[in-house]
Nucleic acid binder design. Structure first.
Length: 412
DNA sequence: AAATCGGGGCG
DNA sequence: CGCCCAGATTT
């Protein structure tokens, strides 16, 4: 046997060792997760969409609620979109929920409500990419397809000491070829789950528990002592900060005891979610970035923004500040309480609304080009605490609204 | 290839 | 407080 052939034989042994020991370990260590209690392709699919960029512990309660409310593909396909979004409230990446419902309609109409088990059909579902397709095909149908997520790339890059940048596209393709080779005959479902389970429980990003690892003795990174410097991944660009002025408008007259919310546009950030109205804060005088806008200037800007959006309310004072972090933006919301101008009183109290008397005041240019805000003109509602059940809010507004209603209650 | 899309947990 | 996570879609 040539040296080259011996080397190949050794590589093959290392792969066989990995697969067999990992599979063995999984059978003893796998967690009891709600979507593992049945082999229902619909459950597997829902869980995999929820698990995109989201931790298991976060997903569990959402998954249980979701399948209780939408037990079948058809019930999801036929549900009002607002109910699906409400079920997703707080989980983030809300396009996942809208894509999922769209895909449920695809499954209902094209496949008679049965989740398809062939590659092209699964890939064709909205919101299902390379990872999720592989996960559904392997976990639900035991098809020998790779399911490579960040977790799997971390495990493979360490065990095989691969220094490819996992943030790059071609790396995932390379990892998929490798992962496919490793699947033991007839064991795609268990093996792919084992790979992810190892990444979640043992081969963790920061301090991997190598001493508990079933494949430590042939882990190339461990043997080289470089396991904590893998995988190689280019750092993400830091999110840009955005200062915004938000209005907590309390109702008068027929709206007494209620708060004004509005719905975001059909597409883009937080699409179709509900929120307190808010607009970019003008830069503070004096230039220093991040400097707090003087209250008077903030009140004036908010007053003009409200009027331009067709909301008749008077800003009264600063209430609180809140932060909301996205992957690419950080909002700092300065929240001001505002009082609705009573529609009936308006014509009678011209003097009392002095700031509004200058009807000829030109509209403030909220954007440099003078265009209006895409958020302005969305649907508006006056709600009390009970009404919050009917609208889906991003977490930051959920917390603000709950806190407001708590405080309003205590003052009575 | 790069940007857009949330939110939380952890060392 | 920086870093990361069971990614897909759009540009």
């Amino acid at each position: 046997m040539t040296t080259h052939e011996q080397q190949e034989q050794q590589e093959q042994n290392v792969k066989l060792f990995f697969s067999s020991h990992l599979l063995e370990w999984y059978h003893g260590q796998k967690r009891d997760l709600p979507w593992r209690r049945h082999r229902n392709p619909y459950y597997i699919w829902i869980s995999e969409i929820m698990l995109q960029q989201t931790r298991v512990d976060t997903v569990i309660p959402y998954f249980n609620r979701f399948i209780e409310r939408f037990p079948t593909v058809e019930s999801l396909a036929d549900a009002p979109e607002e109910e699906v979004l409400k079920c997703w409230e707080g989980l983030g990446y809300y396009s996942r929920a809208r894509n999922l419902q769209h895909a449920a309609q695809q499954v209902k109409e094209l496949y008679g409500g049965q989740v398809p088990d062939d590659r092209d059909a699964v890939f064709g579902l909205k919101g299902v990419g390379p990872y999720t397709a592989g996960a559904i095909l392997s976990i639900a149908f035991n098809r020998p397809e790779p399911a490579v997520d960040g977790n799997v790339m971390r495990v493979l890059s360490r065990y095989f000491l691969l220094e490819d940048d996992i943030a790059k596209g071609p790396t995932r393709v390379k990892m998929e070829r490798l992962a496919a080779e490793l699947i033991p005959e007839g064991e795609a479902s268990h093996f792919n789950q084992a790979l992810m389970e190892l990444g979640a429980l043992v081969c963790t990003p920061k301090s991997p528990r190598c001493l508990l690892c079933p494949v430590m003795e042939h882990c190339a990174a461990r043997l080289a002592g470089c396991e904590t410097s893998l995988p190689v991944k280019t750092k993400a660009k830091p999110p840009r900060p955005e200062e915004r002025l938000a209005a907590l408008v309390t109702g008068s007259g027929e709206h007494a005891g209620r708060v004004l919310i509005r719905q975001r546009p059909q597409s883009g950030l937080l699409a179709r979610m509900w929120e307190l109205p808010h607009w970019p804060a003008p830069p503070a005088e004096g230039g220093a970035a991040g400097a707090l806008l003087p209250e008077a200037a903030a009140l004036d800007r908010l007053r003009r923004s409200l009027r331009q959006a067709g909301i008749f309310a008077r800003p009264e004072g600063h209430w609180t500040a809140a932060e909301h972090t996205f992957s690419h933006i950080v909002w700092t919301l300065q929240v001001y309480t505002c009082r609705e101008e009573d529609a009936l009183a308006l014509p009678l109290a011209a003097e009392a609304r002095a700031p509004y008397a200058a009807a000829a005041e030109p509209p403030v240019e909220l954007f440099a080009d003078g265009s209006e805000h895409p958020e302005d003109g969305g649907a508006v509602r006056w709600i009390n605490r009970e009404d919050m059940e009917s609208y889906a809010f991003p977490n930051v507004f959920l917390k603000l609204l709950n806190r407001y209603f708590d405080e309003a209650e205590q003052q009575q």
